[in-house]
Each structure stands twice: as C-alpha cells, then as structure tokens.
Amino acid sequence: MNIGLDVGSTTAKIVHVEEREVIFSKVVPSHHWTELIDDGQDDRCIVSTGYFRKKVPHCAAITEITAASLGARYHNPETQVIIDIGGQDTKVIDLRSNTFVINDKCSAGTGAFLELAAHYFDIPVGSLGRLHSLATKGAQLNNTCGVFAISEMISQLVSGYSMEEVIYGLHQAFALKISQMVPSADTVMLIGGTVRNTGIIDAINNVLDSKIEVPGAPQLVNALGAALYRERLDDGR
C-alpha cells in the first residue's frame, strides 16, 4: 500500500493507494494531522507533501508541484495545465514544458481572499458557490489587492448591488487574477480545496478558453500524487 500525506496551510489529507486505486482517504484541519497516522503502524513509508512536508514523518518529502503533477496525470494523462488553488498560494503548472508559476505575494488569487470575503459577509466560505449561482450578473471589482477589494465590495453594496451579485463579481475578479498566470492550453485541471466552490469553477470557465476539468475530490489530488510517487521510489528513480 502507498500512502500520501499532504499537510497544507489549512487542511491535512491522507490517501491510501493500492494497485493504483484509492482505498482510503481522510481530511482534517492541519493542526490535527497526527490523527491521520496515529493507527499504531509506525514502520510504513509515507510520502509527504504540502507546507509541512518536512515536519511530518516521511520516507520521502516532495513539493506540492510534483505531487500535483502526478495526481493530476492519474486523473487524466492528457491534462496540459493544472491550477492548484491553495489557502495561501496558487500554483499553475504547465505539464507540457515542466514549468510552473506560484503566486504567493498577493492574496487576491488564493483561498485566503475568499475566506476574507466570507468573513466580511459573516457566511461560511462553503456557501459562496450557492450564492454565486443565485446571481445573474456581477458587480465589477477593479481592485486586485485582497484588502482593497473588500472596501470596494462595501461600496458596491452601498450603491445597491445584492450580496449575491457582489459575490459573483468577486469570483470573476478572482478568476481574472488567476488567468494572468495561465498559459493557453486545451485542457486545464482545477485542484485544491478552494475549487469545491462551484462559483470559482463557473468564473474560471467564463474567463479561460480552455476545457476545464475538476476531479472528483480536488482537495485530495496532491496527497494522491504523493502516494503515487512511492512507486517511483520503488523503481529507484
């Protein structure tokens, strides 16, 4: 059995893979990561990834870039580009050229931006997608800085836009910000916990010309990739 453990900034995930099939997975808040491996079996080889990859038990630690590449290819070997929207950063990986870019300077294209907006509206971040779907148009957000975007959203509410329209516009601005990092491609796969927000998928679909794919459990792709990396270790690669 191959085990991948992804301990990121917000959540920790584990995936068990046997004969290239996922047989178990679990997600907990990051600081509870020990719960994922406290089943008394200390002699296993775990491949770790994520921010805390070197802080957790592992026989190999790989970056999220490599983990995402392996995990995305498992779902679709033809995928050309991956967009991994994390809590603190967003990574775009071009599998055709083995290149990647990471945005970790500006919060506007990361999960933290959506958290900030949800916090302002005092709603769970998980409800942003549903509210987005209730709007037929959006308020246009001009500010690409996460903090200033919030003050712009407040002005939009004052000028009469509904909360749903402001959220729609927020997702659109988020997608535009990310699209600046994305090369032109036929197929783009979205991964990371943030893409469980269907508003983000809709907005990215509107902004990019590519065919957008979202795997069944987008937040588990990196843990899955880490588990699959184990096969390469066994190959001696």
Partner: peptide, 18 residues
C-alpha cells in the same frame, strides 16, 4: 522559504518529471 520551494520544485521537475 518561497525561493526554496521554487528551487526544490524545479529540481524535482527536472529530475523526476522529465
């Protein structure tokens, strides 16, 4: 740390993924 992550990932890309 941001620089280290990029260098480490690039090294992996060149080694593992190619």
């Amino acid at each position: 740390e941001q620089l280290k992550l990029r260098l480490e990932a690039f090294a992996e890309m060149l080694g593992v993924m190619s």
